[in-house]
Design a protein around this nucleic acid. Structure first.
Lengths: 335, 335
DNA sequence: CTGAAAGCGCTTACAG
DNA sequence: CTGAAAGCGCTTACAG
């Protein structure tokens, strides 16, 4: 590899100053037709492209967005990444990914690293996203989009799926199909998305004039085994449910395992519904009716919000927003 | 946000030169105990961390690795990304992701962009990875790891799954379980991984003393529908196969659909095997026996190779390597 | 319409 | 043991 050519090489060869070369590139000041043509041809000839590093240092922006997630291996996040890339690539941004495994120290560390790298913006998704996780970025004046947070605050826009609506929509769907005795297999109580889904379930029951029965809420692990255990418990009830909502698709698959083992017909004897629409939901048999957000669209929305922030000036800045993504039913065989 | 503090602020406050501050940070030259302690405390006090951009420009390395893939949404790639992060994060590298959709122009474009951004290394995975795709990087002296390429060349290490071995291993597994009439549902002929899998299948048959029968190779789309279509064709044969190898798991799931519809018992009447071990393979019923590489480990291997290249000097440089990843059988219910 | 010079924030030969 | 100065490769006030 020969010595990399720089702007001054181009300038010398074209018989102009680096200033002028820079201006033909940026178009930020008029350059005479002939000069411009000459510079352009020298650029092509030498194959020169401006070094982004130097440019970034000088212009104080890197055209880089950090995407910090708990586990890039969880299919939700690649879809978000895709959506983000969909909208930010065109204006020239690249995305830097960071994986935290949900560890608070890794989260802090990664945010700090991204700050020292002068990323232009950060999208942060933690299992329990809190604004304190991104304090270092906010302090440095870097706009952040928090996925899954409870509320927006200065410098932090929040974008999250509407889990309460998800629970409501799922429940209304089952009620609409004639199921009145509906159970819910969820996890340990807390106040994350699972709790919101249960809240939506209660709300939908109430507004349909159905009684909420706490016996029909069972708490298990968020796994296939948890779903199976929950289903067993429900079937031991004096009056077992006719339909069961499961806090996520893996739990629903566990519930279906039990239904199959017991010889129950799904959805006739028992309807089963999950949340998230993982890839397997469509592939198992019976296929799983579930509630889906659109992670790629969420990624796009995040990109748009951030691009908006990056285009703002101090005087045009709008208030931090909280954007909720409405989910919808993906009807399949199980309910 | 106050004006960002720089190395000269730290130096001034500690009563030393920026040179010294830099050296206490890098440890590349001795600094007296007391000075070092003073500088350190000022660093903490002001919360100063060196601006990576400036550092990169000066040191001519960015501690950044680009990962260019066709579709980050294909679960194979997030796993590779994870493995890559596993090994490169510790020494301080970050990874920049690029999505090409397999478009040759997007591939060239992304490689070029990564070069202008002075990434330290590139891992490139195309659907049909060729070294010409990364020519710009090689010219710029940036080491590249090509995933899926046919051969290594100057500046390009190749790491790829051993599809020939995969086909052989799968076939031997079926033979070992007593299946002798084994079909293969694959795609249009070509010379990518699918063709290698078929080649391995032929080789295993031959070395087991079984006859290769071209009627038992059917070519369909790489999809669930393709798998179903292929299975139908095979069942129409005068003597249908007792076992079928499918070029990937989605195709295998299509084959299983047909088996279920026809009331065939799997694996007694018909054994079905796929390749790749997608998430759904374990979740469907009967669960799918398949062949798995270990994408995360592949990502780790890529990271190690690249880190090795980055540590090399002109004199210590070793020849480009081609590394093959051996797959293994994941035995489940379907075969 | 164009250029010389300063500066983004560091590191590192060079000198003492 | 330490510092002054040059330089990484650009962009942009400032001046003409």
């Amino acid at each position: 590899m020969a010595k990399r050519v720089g702007i001054s090489d181009v300038a010398a060869r074209a018989g102009v100053s680096p200033t002028t070369v820079s201006h033909v590139l940026s178009g930020r000041r008029h350059v005479s037709e002939v000069t411009r043509a000459r510079v352009r041809s020298v650029m092509d000839e030498l194959g020169w492209e401006p070094n982004q590093l130097a440019r970034s240092l000088r212009m104080q922006r890197t055209l880089t967005i950090a995407l910090i997630v708990p586990d890039i291996t969880n299919p939700f996040y690649p879809s978000v990444a895709r959506g983000l890339l969909d909208v930010v690539s065109e204006p020239g941004y690249q995305v830097l990914i960071g994986n935290t495994d949900g560890s608070p120290s890794a989260e802090k560390d990664l945010v700090a690293r991204m700050v020292t790298r002068s990323v232009d913006a950060i999208v942060f998704a933690g299992y329990y996203s809190k604004s304190s996780d991104v304090a270092a970025a906010v302090e440095a004046g870097i706009p952040v989009a928090l996925m899954g947070g409870r509320r927006a605050s200065a410098g932090i826009d929040v974008l999250t799926s509407d889990d309460l609506a998800a629970g409501e929509i799922a429940t209304r769907y089952l009620i609409g199909r004639g199921y009145h005795r509906i159970a819910f297999i969820t996890g340990a109580s807390g106040d994350g998305p699972p709790a919101d889904r249960v809240k939506g379930y209660r709300r939908a029951l109430t507004s349909a004039g159905l009684r909420f029965n706490s016996q029909l809420i069972v708490r298990e692990e968020f796994s296939r085994a948890g779903g199976a255990a929950g289903m067993e418990k429900l079937l031991e009830l004096h009056k077992p449910p006719r339909a069961v909502l499961c806090t996520n698709d893996m739990v629903a698959i566990g519930a279906l395992d039990v239904a199959r083992a017991r010889g129950l017909r799904v959805p006739d004897d028992l309807a089963v519904m999950g949340f998230d629409d993982i890839e397997a939901a469509a592939l198992i048999s019976p296929s799983l009716t579930t509630i889906a957000g659109d992670p790629r669209e969420q990624g796009r929305a995040v990109g748009r919000v951030l691009l908006g922030r990056l285009a703002e000036t101090a005087t045009t800045a709008s208030l931090p927003q909280r954007i909720l993504f409405a989910p919808s039913v993906v009807p399949r065989e199980s309910a």
